Amino acid sequence: MSQGVEHTDVGAYALGLLEEDDRRAFEAHLSTCESCTAELAELSGVATALTGMGPVEEDPLPEEDVLDLLRRRRAEARRSRRGTMVIAAAAAVTLLACGITIGARLGGDTPGTVAGSEHAGHLGPAEQFYAEGTPVEGTGVDGVTGGLVLESKGWGTHAALRLAGVKGPLECELVAVSRSGQRKIMTGWSVPPSGYGVPGSPDPLYMHGGSPWPLQQIDHFEVNTTAGKTLLTVKA
């Protein structure tokens, strides 16, 4: 990326494939590019979905070899200008073929394993980030509970959401509300009929989200259904 920041680099950034100088340059680009910020929030779920895959071969490749292969796929995708989803798809194929668990290494800014936790290696990036942070608990309705771990970034605000006590089917969004009353969607997802954090489906949902606004400009966050109901409110 020595000749300038490219929109196609959002996928490489999400998967932690950028070199340090490129990563800093792209974070600066995110602070002025809403489309890349929104796409980063969408792609954050890809790393979560890929984490924790079990072995599919008896002799998986070493982790460093897989990371090198991911970087080569990233370079090929940039040359062909096919965009960030090619990078994500290449990562999925690579991980399935090699049968390893890279975990948080897929997220360039995701912290390492939780100290003293044997379960940490099996956490998805959003869950691990939430476990290591200081959650801000929200106020829910109809038995919904949850909170956010917030992090200021060069491009805006990174958030990890924990949500429980919700049944589907629903379509939901995490929304940032500025001090001036403006609203921006940080990420969205579907709740299956079985739900999250309820009897029969006890595991809560963990989700990444991103906003181009600095944390000091945000008044609060909301988890809303696409039908307009607010399930959870979290003060910034």
Rank of each mutant, 00 (worst) to 15 (best):
V114E: 07
R105E: 05
G124F: 03
Y130T: 00
W189G: 00
G124P: 02
P212R: 12
P169N: 11
S180L: 14
G168E: 05
G181V: 10
V141W: 14
S178M: 09
P169Y: 06
A104H: 08
E127W: 01
L174K: 01
P125A: 02
Q216H: 15
D109Y: 11
A131P: 08
H158N: 07
T113V: 06
Q182E: 15
G195S: 05
G121S: 15
P192T: 03
I102E: 02
A120Y: 13
C98V: 04
Q216M: 04
R179E: 03
G197K: 14
L123C: 06
A176I: 03
V177D: 03
L215R: 15
L148P: 09
G210T: 01
G116K: 15
S178L: 08
Y130Q: 00
G107S: 08
G195V: 11
G156L: 12
S117T: 06
S180C: 12
A131C: 06
Q182S: 15
G197P: 08
L170A: 07
E132Y: 09
C98K: 13
L161C: 05
F129E: 00
G116R: 15
V191H: 04
R183E: 03
R105V: 03
I102D: 01
L106Y: 13
I100T: 08
G99F: 08
L123R: 07
V177T: 03
C98M: 09
I100E: 02
V177Q: 09
V136L: 15
G108Y: 09
D109I: 06
P199V: 03
G200K: 15
V166P: 12
T110Q: 00
G112F: 09
G181L: 14
L174I: 04
I100M: 09
G124T: 07
T187E: 04
A104F: 09
W213F: 07
R105P: 10
T113H: 12
H122Q: 11
V144P: 06
A131G: 04
A97H: 14
V198L: 14
E173C: 04
L161D: 00
G147K: 14
L174A: 02
G103D: 03
G107H: 08
A160I: 00
K167S: 11
G168C: 06
H122W: 11
A97W: 09
E132K: 15
G103F: 02
G168H: 13
W189R: 03
W213M: 03
G140N: 02
E137H: 12
S190L: 05
G165C: 14
D142L: 15
L161W: 01
A115N: 10
L106F: 13
P202M: 12
V177K: 13
T110G: 00
S201Y: 10
